[in-house]
Simulated assay, not measured.
Amino acid sequence: MNFEPFDTGLVIERLKALVPDLRKVGGAADYAAVQELRGFATPSAFVIFAGESGGGTGPRGARVQPAVTRFGLALAVTNYRPGAGDQLGDELRKYIGLTRSALIGWVPPIPGATALVWEAGEVMDYDHSTVLYVESYQLNHLLQK
C-alpha cells in the first residue's frame, strides 16, 4: 500500500484473461509504437493511463487520500465497411461488448477501489482495413501509506 498511481497493468491482465480472442493487449508504449492504422494487429486493445485527481469518495487524512483515476482503452479491429467509419461494424461491436463486459463493474484488487465505470467511447480514426475506437473509464481508489 502506497501513494503510487493506479496500475493499468491490472486492466491489461484482466483483458488478456477474459477476452482471449484479442491478438494483442498492451499499454501506452505498445500503442505509441504503431505508426499508422494498418500497423495495428487486429483485433487488439491498448490500455492508456489518462490521469488522476483528488476528490474521490473515501476517508481523508495525512495517511489516506481518495483518488479518481481515468484510463483509455483503444480498440483496433478490422474495418469491413470502407468509408463508413461512422457506422459500427459487426466485429467492432463484438469487441466493444467483450471488453465492456470484462471491465464495467469490475473492482480491481487495490485498496478502496470502486467498480470501474464506463464514461464514453468514439471512433477516432479509420481506413479501408482498420478502425480505431477509444473508450474512457474511471474508478475511485485510495492512496495510502
Rank of each mutant, 00 (worst) to 15 (best):
N2Q: 05
F3P: 05
E4G: 05
E4Y: 11
P5T: 13
F6H: 01
F6T: 04
D7Y: 05
G9I: 00
G9L: 04
G9C: 03
L10V: 01
V11L: 07
V11G: 04
L15Q: 09
A17Q: 14
L18Q: 15
L18M: 10
V19T: 13
L22S: 08
R23H: 13
G26L: 09
G26I: 07
G27Q: 07
A28M: 14
A29F: 11
A29I: 11
A29N: 12
Y31F: 15
A33G: 13
L37K: 02
L37M: 07
A41S: 12
P43L: 11
P43W: 08
S44G: 14
S44I: 01
S44K: 05
S44Q: 05
S44Y: 06
F46V: 02
F46T: 05
F46P: 09
I48D: 04
I48Q: 09
F49L: 01
F49T: 01
E52D: 08
E52S: 05
S53Q: 13
G54L: 01
G54Q: 02
G56Y: 01
T57W: 02
T57C: 00
P59I: 01
P59A: 13
R63T: 15
R63N: 15
V64R: 07
V64Q: 07
P66F: 04
V68G: 01
V68C: 04
T69N: 04
F71C: 05
F71L: 03
G72H: 05
G72S: 13
L73K: 04
L73Y: 12
V77G: 02
R81A: 14
P82M: 01
Q87C: 00
Q87Y: 10
L88N: 10
L88A: 12
G89K: 04
D90I: 13
E91I: 06
K94N: 13
Y95N: 06
I96P: 09
I96V: 15
I96N: 08
I96L: 12
I96S: 08
I96H: 07
R100V: 05
R100P: 05
R100Y: 11
L103Y: 07
I104E: 15
I104S: 10
V107T: 15
P108F: 04
P108S: 06
P109A: 14
I110T: 13
P111C: 03
G112R: 04
A113F: 09
A113Q: 04
T114A: 08
L116F: 06
L116K: 02
V117W: 06
V117Y: 07
W118M: 05
E119P: 00
A120V: 02
E122L: 02
E122N: 11
E122M: 03
M124F: 08
M124N: 11
D125E: 13
D125P: 02
Y126C: 06
Y126G: 01
Y126N: 10
Y126T: 12
H128Q: 13
S129G: 12
S129V: 01
T130Q: 03
T130A: 06
L132T: 03
Y133S: 03
V134P: 01
V134C: 03
E135T: 14
S136P: 00
S136Y: 10
S136Q: 14
S136W: 03
Y137I: 00
L139F: 06
N140E: 15
N140W: 01
L142S: 05
K145H: 13
K145C: 06
